[in-house]
Design a protein around this nucleic acid. Sequence first.
DNA 1: GGAGAGGCTTACT
DNA 2: AAGTAAGCCTCTC
Length: 123
Amino acid sequence: MAKSQAYQRIRAEVIRLVGLIPKGRFTTYGSIAVHMNVVPRHVASVLSKLSDVEAAELPWHRVLSADAQISPRMDSELKSTQRQRLEAEGLSFDAEGKVQNADLHFHVVGIRRNIRWDSPAGV
DNA sequence: GGAGAGGCTTACT
DNA sequence: AAGTAAGCCTCTC
C-alpha cells in the first residue's frame, strides 16, 4: 500500500497520458489535470517528483503550460532541455518560448476543455 | 500533527 | 494589457 493511493493514481495517470503523447505534439498541465479531475498543480508536482528513470523515459517535455509555453518556474536546465527536445521533435519555438502553431500540435488528452489560444480565428 | 511549498490556472484589479 | 491574489490537493519537513 502506498502512502497515498490518490497520488499513486494521479502519478500513474500522468505518466500514462504523457507517454501517450505522440512525437511532435504537446499538451498542457491543465488538460491532463482536467482529464484526471485533479488540479494542475498536481500534474506539475508529479512531473517534478518523477523517478529518475521515469524522467528519462517519459517525454515530460511534451507537457507545457496553459499558453503552450515552457513553464518559467522550471529549472533553467530543464527549460532548455525541454525546448531542445521539442525542437528535435519538429516543434518550433518563439523567442518567448512559445510553441508555434500550438493549435496544430496540441495533443488532446481524452477530454478537452475550452482551450483558448490567442487566436482560434486562424483555424 | 501543523505549517510551508509545489515545473499551474483562473479571475479580478 | 499586465500584475496580483486566491485556489486547488497532496507531499515533505
